[in-house]
Structure formats: C-alpha cells, structure tokens
Write a protein that binds this DNA or RNA. Sequence first.
DNA 1: AATGAATGAGTTTTCATTCAT
DNA 2: GATGAATGAAAACTCATTCAT
Lengths: 196, 196, 196, 196
Amino acid sequence: MPKVGMEAERRRSLISATVDAIHESGYSDVTMAQIAKRAGVSGGLVHHYFGSKDQLLAATMRHLLNELGRAIREGLARAETPRERITAIIEGNFAVDQFRPAVIAAWLAFYVQSRTTESNKRLLSIYAARLASNLTHNLKAFMPRDKARHVAEGTASMIDGVWIRQALSDTHTDRQAAIAMVEDYVETQIAAHKAQ
Amino acid sequence: MPKVGMEAERRRSLISATVDAIHESGYSDVTMAQIAKRAGVSGGLVHHYFGSKDQLLAATMRHLLNELGRAIREGLARAETPRERITAIIEGNFAVDQFRPAVIAAWLAFYVQSRTTESNKRLLSIYAARLASNLTHNLKAFMPRDKARHVAEGTASMIDGVWIRQALSDTHTDRQAAIAMVEDYVETQIAAHKAQ
Amino acid sequence: MPKVGMEAERRRSLISATVDAIHESGYSDVTMAQIAKRAGVSGGLVHHYFGSKDQLLAATMRHLLNELGRAIREGLARAETPRERITAIIEGNFAVDQFRPAVIAAWLAFYVQSRTTESNKRLLSIYAARLASNLTHNLKAFMPRDKARHVAEGTASMIDGVWIRQALSDTHTDRQAAIAMVEDYVETQIAAHKAQ
Amino acid sequence: MPKVGMEAERRRSLISATVDAIHESGYSDVTMAQIAKRAGVSGGLVHHYFGSKDQLLAATMRHLLNELGRAIREGLARAETPRERITAIIEGNFAVDQFRPAVIAAWLAFYVQSRTTESNKRLLSIYAARLASNLTHNLKAFMPRDKARHVAEGTASMIDGVWIRQALSDTHTDRQAAIAMVEDYVETQIAAHKAQ
DNA sequence: AATGAATGAGTTTTCATTCAT
DNA sequence: GATGAATGAAAACTCATTCAT
C-alpha cells in the first residue's frame, strides 16, 4: 500500500524547492533539474506531479498568493476597528512567513513575470483589487471616499516599494522597519486630513 | 558616405530593440534572435557588437541608468531651492522617456534581475546611494538629519512602488499622477514635521 | 473463491486493451500507462504479467494471429470442396471478430512493424506461407500449378489491400463488400482460365 | 555571402535521410539524432529547417505524395487511349523512384500513421479520391459506370496490397511483377465484362 | 498479487555562439 | 562589416521499468 498523503507532501516540498531555487538563481535561470535536486527527487518526478515547468511555477505562485491571503485574513479576524484593520492588512503583507528572503525574491519574480503571463496576471489582479477595496473601505472611516481611494493606492504602492527594496537589499530583512514605514505613511495621511 | 557613427547608431538601435523585446516577452524569454529581428539585423551582428547576450543586457541596463541619471541631472540643474531639487529628483524619475511602458518594463526586469547578478547589483547600488544621499541632503532643509534620512527612504520606496505598479498596470501610464503621488508623500511628511 | 483462471483473464484483458490503445493512438504513440489505464489496472501490473512492453506487444500480435488462424480453420472444417475451401479462407480473413476497426488497426500496425522487428516477421511469414500454400493447393483444382500459385499471390494481395483500405477508411467496415471483392477476383480468374 | 539555394538542398537531403531512417528503424523508432547523423548535420539544424519532428515527418510525407503524383502525371501525359491511361496510372504507382525499398517502407509507414494523424489523413484522402476518379473515368470506356467504380476500387486495393507485400518482402523488389499483377486484374475484369 | 511512487535513460527542443563566405 | 547557416551544449519532457509497501 503506497503512502497516503505522499502526493500533497511532495507537491509542498517541490513548491518550497522552487521558491528557494528562484531565490538562489533568479527566475530566468531556474531549471527543473535544480529544483528536483533541491527537493531530493529525480527530474522525472517533478513532471509527474506538475506536468510541466510552467505549471510548477504557476502552482508556486498560487501557493504564495494563498499564503499571503491567509496571513491577511488571520490578522483581519483579530482586528476590531477600522484603524486596526488597516494595520492588520499592512502587517499581513509583511507576515513572518512572507518576509523570508527566499519568499520575497520569489514573490517579486512572479510579480514581474506576471506582466507577460496572462494567467499570473489574472491571479495578481484579483489580489490587488481585494487589497485596494479593503484598504479604501477602512480608510473611509477617516476621510472622504475619494481621498481614501487615493491613500489606499499610496499605501499599496508603499507596500510594493518596501517589498521590492527588501528583495534587493543585502541587509537582513527587517519586518518591523518595513511595517513602520507603511504605517507612518498611513498615519501621516490620516493626520493630515484631520488637520485640514 | 563616411561610416563614422555607424557603430554607435547600431549599438543604440540594438539596445532599443532589447528594451522592446523585454517589454514584449519578459526578461526570461528574450532571445538573441528576437532582438536581432526587431533591430532588422542578423543574429551574428549582435554578437559582433556586444560580444555576448550578457554583455548586451548589461549595456542595455547601463544605458537605462545613464538616461535616468541624465534626466535627474538636467532637472537639478534648473532647480534653485532644496524643495525644487526634491521635485526635480522625483520628476526626473518619471521623465517622459523613462516612463514609456517598454522602458518601465525593462527597468523593472533589470531591477529584479540585479538581485542575482552581481554586476547589475553594483550599478544599481551606486545609483540608489546617490538618490538617497541627494534626497536626504535636500530634505535636511526641512527636518533633522535622522528624519530626513527616513523620509528619503520612504520617498525612494514610494518611487519604486509607483514604478512597479505602472509596469504591471494595463492602463496607459500617467506621469502626472505618478509624480503627484510621490510629491504628496513628501509634502505631507514635511508638513507633518512642521506641525510638531 | 479460487483465483484459478484469473491470470489468463488478466492477460486477455490487457491484450484487448493494447489492441484498443493502438487503434486510438497508433502503434508509435501507445504507452504502457495508457494500456494500463484502459485495462483498469496499475502500470506495474502490466509488467508483472508480461515482463516488458515488447513482450506485451508480441503477445498481442500472437493473439491476433491465433484468432485469425482459428477463424480460418473453423471455416475450413465446414468446407467440403476446393471451391468452398477457397471461400472459407477468404471469409476467415474477414471473420467478424477480425474485422472490428480496432482489430484491423492493430493488425495493420503489427503487419507494418514486422518489417523491422525480426520476431514479428517470423510469425507473419509462417502465416503467409500457410495461406499461400492453402490457396494454391485448392486453386490447383481449377488451373495448373503455376497459374494457381500466381492467383494465390493475387488473392493474398487483394486481401491485404482490402484490409489496409478498411483500416484507413472512415466508413463503417463492411465485411460482405470486402469478401465480395476478393471472391470476385478469384471467380473471375477461375472463369478466365476455363474460357481459354 | 551565404550559399543561395542551400536551404532547398538541405531540406531535400533531410527528407531523404528521413525516408532512409524510417526504412532502417521503422517509423516508431526513428529519432531526430539518427536522421541528422544520416544527413551529416547536427541535430539542431533539423529543427532549424523544419521546426519539429512532426513537421519534418509531415514534409517527408508531402514529398512522397508529390513524387508519386508527378510520376503518374508524367505517365498520363504520354498516354493516348483510356486503356493506356489505366496502364499509366498503374505504372506510375510503381515508378522506379517510388519503388525503392526505402521509399516503399516510408510510404507504408505514413499510410498507416495517417490513420491517427488528421493532417496526414487529409493529404492521403485527396490522393485516393483522385486515383479512384481517374481510374473510374477510364474504365468507363469498357464497362458501365457502376462496374467501373467497382473495378477501380479493386484496382486500388490490388495496388495497395501489392505495395504492402513488397514492403514486407525480403526479396528484391520487382516492379515488373508488381505491375503485371495489377494489369492482370484489370485485364481480366475487362475481358470478363466483354464476355458477358 | 497489486499498487503507484519514483527513477533515469533517452528524446525532442531551444538558443547562444561560431564561422565560412 | 555583415550575413545566416551551422553547431553543440543545456534544457524540458517522456516513459518504460523498478521497487517498497
């Protein structure tokens, strides 16, 4: 009797190996052989589970998106006020698991890759729309709809900017500083509106 | 007819073809044949002028960096106050030539690629350091050194964030909105400090 | 419940799956996995019963030859005159079981494959020799030995030709028309000889 | 300046190598490497000229069909009576170039392969329809339309049957015997009709 | 006996690079 | 300088076969 659940475990470990391989070599230089070796399996097995390189990469991206969505949802579940919800969204974007160098690197690679890959693009735009709507909704507690929409866009830009700079930085990633940077943006915008 | 300048022209047109090819297919799918075809020359000629694909890509990235540097320098030359210089730096980052979709896409590709390519990384970090130092220096006219450094980092993050989002957006690029977003960040930060 | 006969049944069902798989995908595209799936068993089992793909294919071809031989022998057993025996041979070649599209397709595939596979070739040439000798012997009742040998060769050619055309035709296979075509050839040849 | 006309020559030599390789190893065992070696070029070049293995095989089949069509057309051009035209069609099917062992083997392989390959099937059915119509038309000079159609089908079957048997025979191919066999069929049928 | 996970050898395919013309 | 034919190394992919369970 073959090991039940082996498939899920293998898929997980191959996706993890893919993330690490992208971190090490960059998206455009990753090979199936490299991923297989990292996962400690034969090259053939990767095809057995994912069918093709493209499908493995797509599955990896979906996995990263799901993890990110989960992190944000968990934070939101604990938040009670709009302000707390904004913080939850920001912190969710820099959740511990998401903010490991390898994950950041892979994220960024997929993010950029999605420009030319239709299916990736679709996945990302769903996530982006949800983020924008979520932020806008909670910012409306502090400012009019138009301004809220604008600040939401600024917050999303800041998150992406902090992220990309972390991906490229040599220094150890710093969650707290990343979160503080975005929070500062939001806080200042809210304060600026109150002051008017 | 003298052939002087022919070489420079060929190199320029090949670099331009490279930028367009990256825009169309993404960094990891670009081939030499594609670039040659786009430039209307034979595959062999690309090697004749650049030696290798890596060198062509490196030259393309250097070109983009130079253009960006030039745009910023030109703006700075016309600016007279610290506040104007900050605006010049921001606007330089979204100069017309820089903000065509193909250039944005290529920029982003190199930006991300630089994570795993040492020579690219070096080029970028020089530029990044100059940007940070420039912004910090001018922000010190409005706030203490530590705060200025922090806001400079925020400004750079915001620039990167706006940029990456433009690269992925379907909508026509909008220089003015991009500039306004970053200017708003800076303005709000300066105002927030004044208010304290 | 005794498992006696289980093995024979499994082998039969795997051979049948092989015939169908060849019909569907063509000889050169058939895979073990496909055959196993069709037979509703695991890939490993096919090897357990047949040892290798080559052996499975060889067994399938032997099976087809045996069935054909049996069909002809049964017809011959009921025939009483030379003319009836000729008809029995022809009809045996288009016996109901032999003339299903999948069987025709598999037959043809093996037939052609035998050109480069020594073991297949041997099997076929035994059958071909028996067919030629059988036809010749019975035709000698109507014409001299040399002429009979010649007509036997023509009959065999006509049988093969009708068969290959059925394999490629889209239309539903038509036993009666196939038989009539070959019978007509034989009849006309016999008549032509008588007329001389 | 590169050699003009090199491409046509290369394509011809690769198609010829493909025919020979199929003859040697059989359709299902032919590899690109084998073909390339036979043609004395690198494996990459085959892809350069044909794009893929499938396309090379398709081009080879088209070539064989064209050659056959040309042989028949040339014969028909010299024929003056219906009877001569029938002979021309038959002889064209066994023209010298067509009747080399390697060509016969490749023909047969494609013929059978076409059962599962839609594009091949289309090519063949066009040829088959033209053959049937051509034969029927000329046979009508000797018998009523229905009978002519029937004898045309028999002639085509006989041609195919003789061909497949030649492909599998060890003995040196014998054009004259092949032609005589089909001619005999036609002649006997015409005579049989007259006698009625 | 039976499974199907896993392997690895073999094949197609891609593409940067070279080179004769 | 310029071409594009040709190469060959590296990559993806396929699949018969093995083997632990």
